[in-house]
Amino acid sequence: MQPAYSVIFLTTATGAGYGMLALLGVLRATGNLPDDRAFGLFALGLALALISAGLLASMAHLGRPERAWRALSQWRSSWLSREGVLAIIGYGPAVVFAFGWLVLQKNEGLWPLAGLATAVLSIATVYATSMIYRSLAAIPRWDQPLVAPVYMILALATGAIWLNAVLVPFVAGHALIQAICFATLALAWVLKIGYWRAIDSTVGTSTTASATGLEGLGPVPPQVRPLDPPHVQDNYLLKEMGFTIARKHAHKLRRLTHLLAFIVPLVLIVIQAATSGPVSVLAAALAAISVSFGVVLERWLFFAEAQHKVMLYYGADRV
């Protein structure tokens, strides 16, 4: 699949934003965050800015963005529609949560519920995003059980690391958040390695013979090879679904993803936890920057390594 930059930015930014928002909601509801208005403004502002920027970027990907409101109507069947509906509903409790924190400075009675509701809707939105890909059987490398867990845990991990970066200047050494950063990122790493193993070992179920209805010719399925192409220039299908990445490049980029998304941030979180003062602040900020570039790369590969079954008509022999 052709990596769509607006979609890569969308999922990376909203992932980090929703992860951060979910953690803010849960941690404040359970009394694990400082009441500090400046911190709250900064953290909530960053989370909501990441989410809003991501959602706006997704509109850039549309052919007719002025009709985007129509995408809210088909939540019964479409994960894309569900994502849009959940994203918009999510602003409701988030605004109430922010009002209770930043304006009223309250965290008792019903106010924590707004934080918990924000967290639930945030994770649900990331789940809906992941299911857009997971539900496409025409792209077997997306139709994988680990796709949704990787999206959700990576959202929590990037959100935790950004939250940590914002928190360190206010509270030096928040052990719970450091532990969450480390645990979620380590879990995301394990799941991502599992995903890569799964797609590397999965054998496609469709062949050019089954795609052309010629499977039944002969005692075993015949070999079917493209001879006359239907067109001499790339069409929409080849431009959108025909992107292929050389295996050696994919391996190089996977190694870089291991480094930027997982190894470097994990090491930096440990350094941040072990130090104090400017070194700690710098380590936390660098971890956030590294994990963000790493996840952009991870998303780029998610597209670049995905093969679409339509390529069976254009030279792929098994997808």
Binding site: R64, A68, Y236, M241, H308, K309, V310
Partner: peptide
């Protein structure tokens, strides 16, 4: 008149039956 040109339908079709009209912004 309702299509927003998100292209998801063309991703969902294994047969490549849909082509996007970049001019009209619809499938």
């Amino acid at each position: 008149d309702k299509c927003i040109g998100c292209k998801l339908c063309s991703w969902a079709c294994p047969y490549g039956a849909r082509e996007f009209d970049t001019d009209g912004g619809v499938m």
